[in-house]
């Protein structure tokens, strides 16, 4: 049971990073269906950087801090570049967001597969640094196991989600960002640089989503590359809807998603086929939430009003 919860948290934080990034992006009015591709690219860039770093310094020369910082930086950078690509097409060239996002996913999956094919698919050495936990965590019983035994990225994910929630709701930048996503014409008239906000939100959002991909490989899978990062990406998008665009709610939501996703493995007495049905659950609950919010049609808990729409000031 304890292992189940611990793993639910580990997988959940992958979703959490992915969805927090996507939430930031969507709050700016961008529906980025390229997130799965972005997470792939993020994960592969991180792995690639780790590979290069280890190659350069050898096993003895590894600095544990750098072994984490370098992949994280590479991931963030690689994913943010994907964000720039998305923004260039949708903000600067004003192309349809759905089409761009889907193309970005195709492209991103290709790029990441290519990078991984070129390097290595086992990163267990690097993974050791990512999963290293506080030394005394083991001594604190179930409490330590559940809350303190995780690798650093798990806490980073939590911190990012809380920080995002705070920034969105309590700061000027968050207010401006939400205005851009709700009603860009109004934000523009209020003197907010819509393009700048959309570019930065999408790049930062993509960067954070990308970290989710890295966490998935380095922490949850203990450094074994698997070609299913994009499936995780779609679930991250689902999670955004499931938690009605609230990163703080997403902390709970992500753990629920993680639990649903792996539940079948930990509950005895289920056949392999039933497990596949269980994996369906996150999508089904998302559909239910989507239906529920649209039926209630409250002004609260709705997607940002101009989600998916590009903005052109001189439109008549």
């Amino acid at each position: 049971m304890l292992t189940f919860l611990v793993n639910a948290i580990r997988l959940g934080m992958t979703f959490l990073l992915g969805s927090t990034g996507e939430t930031i992006t969507e709050k700016s009015g961008h529906l980025n269906l390229g997130t799965p591709g972005v997470m792939c690219v993020g994960a592969s860039c991180g792995c690639f950087a780790e590979y290069i770093y280890f190659d350069a310094v050898g096993v003895i020369g590894i600095n544990p801090v750098l072994a984490i910082l370098i992949p994280v930086a590479a991931t963030f950078l690689g994913s943010a570049l994907m964000g720039i690509l998305f923004c260039f097409l949708t903000v600067t060239l004003r192309v349809n967001q759905n089409v761009t996002g889907l193309a970005l996913t195709t492209f991103g999956v290709g790029v990441s597969d290519y990078i991984i094919d070129k390097t290595d698919i086992i990163y267990s050495l690097g993974s050791d640094y990512f999963t290293a936990s506080l030394p005394f965590a083991q001594n604190l019983g179930w409490f330590g196991e559940l809350f303190l035994s995780h690798g650093i990225l798990i806490y980073v994910a939590l911190a990012i989600a809380l920080l995002t929630s705070f920034v969105l709701n309590k700061t000027k930048v968050g207010l401006h960002l939400r205005a851009v996503g709700e009603n860009p014409a109004t934000a523009d008239a209020a003197g907010i640089n819509v393009s700048l906000y959309r570019y930065s939100a999408t790049c930062i959002g993509c960067g954070i989503s990308g970290l989710g991909g890295l966490l998935f490989i380095m922490d949850y899978l203990n450094g074994n590359w698997e070609y299913c990062v994009d499936a995780i990406g779609w679930l991250a998008i689902a999670l955004v809807i499931f938690t009605v665009w609230k990163p703080n709610l997403a902390i709970i939501g992500s753990i629920i998603f993680g639990a649903l996703y792996i539940m079948s493995t930990y509950i005895e007495g289920f056949s392999t086929e039933t497990k596949e049905i269980f994996k369906m659950l996150p999508y089904i609950v998302t559909v239910i939430v989507l239906l529920f919010t649209s039926i209630r049609d409250k002004k609260k808990n709705q997607p940002p009003q101009s989600l998916g729409l590009n903005y052109f000031r001189e439109e008549r």
Partner: peptide, 13 residues
């Protein structure tokens, strides 16, 4: 209901 998101979920189901 937002059809983009709904149909997307239906894929994975």
């Amino acid at each position: 209901t937002n059809e983009t998101l709904f149909t997307l979920m239906m894929n994975y189901i």
